[in-house]
Design a binder for these strands. Structure first.
Lengths: 193, 193, 193, 193
DNA sequence: AATGAATGAGGCTTCATTCAT
DNA sequence: TATGAATGAAGCCTCATTCAT
């Protein structure tokens, strides 16, 4: 679909409104008001409300997947990749915050939209593959339950959308490092030896 | 409010439907169909759709808060309390799975319903207090960012609603132990010594 | 679909409005106004506007087809059956005038609704079969083009919806007899012999 | 009104679309797509959708009326004129098929557009006048109901738009002759004498 | 407590029409 | 003449809610 010129404004408005009210509670009139046009005019840009949701949610989803694919394929050990995963994840959240928040809220792990299940599943599998490789290579604990651990990592990162302000004092990289450090090394103090 | 006799069925149906479709996308007719009555009849039990949401969401929220309050107040060190927090959290999820999933999806960390902000906030504070005490007492790393760590723990646990099947092979206690173990000790293998 | 009690009123209103304005130009609000309810309330009776069209149009269509089937299957020669066809056709028009007018205007021979094509086609075939039998048995001209003649008869009868007032002086039977007489014997005067 | 250069294309597209979907169901965007321009551009050619309908419908209507007026005014007996009427009618249909189909469907005998009532009425009157003259002169049966017979003839001819393919094997003249033959002499076989 | 039926508000979507370029 | 984009009105449909029975 060729997009008229105010498409970025429409997307930004939609993401903002969807994040603030949730996709279902948000109305296209809310979105149109935010852009400064009438709700009917939105249909120069979209075909349906759901298409707008997908348009909003696609950039972070694709970026996350592409960057994660690349990082997983690269050389390196599991702990390094876990840090990289967290940085990519937090980086995407920061860059597309409201868009990503919509993704996390409406789609991730929810199985509600078949169109997105494959993408969603692939990401989980990529993370899991890293962890499994870490166990195999000995860099991660051999008693690690890889499935659970993957979801713990992803969950911690996705949960950032509920409390982290990417424009606040903590940068995406700092957040990523804190989350991945806790994931890798835990929060318990080590007996000095 | 004295509730007529089919109240538990109504609650269960509402939780099921809210979880499956999300609160906003779910209709009272969906709920009524699930119970086997007409939608108008639901108003013998409720005053509004939102009240039904709150009714669904209250049991897990209250139980989580009460049990966590108790556990925080009890004797013990932070690591032990972290395990206990995870067990309580996973236990509440397991016991009220669909109800809790609705809470997590619609309310936790979302700031959408002022009525629930206080409860939601208190829980976060309780967890944070445990972690802060752990740092103070030396059982947790002194470089731990307590706010982030609290959200990491809570996020990992809440994220269970998106992938864990409480009726599957992994019990609530097992899940809690895996999550808390990762949180406390990390996933990195320790050099054997 | 179980129909609430004012269903006949709804049908009558819909037929009236569809006939007056045409299906597409008619609005459900027109129909609702005619019944004396709000447009949303119509959805206690129907699932969509198109379903209402089909509901309106089904009774005359089915009655016409059933009665015509019976008459075709009965004993008799073609000319007698032509008269009977005309009487059935005009009778159905008279009994369900507005409904039938909607059928004729929106559906007959139009191929717009696949759901109705079979019914529509069967009727044409029944008429044609009578004419073909008439040619075979010698009661109709052997140079008759049966396809054309069938459509001429049906067209003359359907065209009644554009000018005949079934509540006017000419009864359905009279109309049928005039139309079938012209069809059978023509309008030319015969040389007295 | 001076018409820009692609006016014939616009008319043809409109006729095609109006015939396929019906005037109300057709959108100006459908028409514009058919022409290969944007819907807004149509307003270089027209002032309103209804004007487009009238433009489409005028050529066959005027041609039919003019030719029929001429033929009625000419010398001759009623039977000959009936044949001529049918030939003119079928000829106009063939020449402007989709345009004429739109006329028949949207306007003929429908009384929906006051602008067209006079034209429509005049045609009916012309046909009726021929039949009445035939009765008076003795060439048509003296028991003929002229009003009904006129509508039968016109209806049979208009109904051609629902089933006849003017590009098929039967020419307009053949169709006209079959229809008028049936109208004049009927379909019943005459006892050989 | 439940039903059947209605209300009324509001949401999504369509579309004829306008207008600056 | 055509485009791109917008307007504004209206239409279909949904749904929380009410109410008489």
């Amino acid at each position: 679909m060729p997009r008229p010129s105010r498409w970025p404004e429409v997307m930004a408005a939609a993401a903002k409104v969807f994040r603030a009210k949730g996709y279902h509670a948000a109305t296209l009139e809310d979105v149109a008001d935010e852009v400064g046009m009438l709700k009917g005019s939105l249909y120069n840009y979209i075909t349906s409300k759901e298409e707008l949701l997908f348009a909003v949610v696609r950039p972070p989803a694709e970026q996350l997947l592409e960057q994660t694919r690349a990082l997983v394929a690269a050389e390196g050990t599991a702990p390094g990749k876990v840090v990289a995963i967290a940085r990519v994840h937090a980086g995407v959240l920061a860059e597309h915050f409201v868009y990503a928040a919509v993704y996390v809220h409406e789609i991730a792990g929810m199985g509600r939209y078949p169109e997105w299940a494959a993408m969603d599943h692939e990401y989980v599998e990529l993370v899991r593959a890293v962890l499994a490789a870490g166990v195999a290579e000995g860099s991660l604990r051999d008693d690690l339950d890889v499935r659970t651990a993957g979801h713990v990592l992803i969950g911690s990162l996705n949960w950032l959308t509920r409390w982290w302000d990417p424009d606040g004092p903590a940068s995406a990289e700092e957040m990523a490092d804190r989350v991945s450090a806790t994931f890798l090394d835990g929060s318990r103090s080590r007996p000095a030896r």
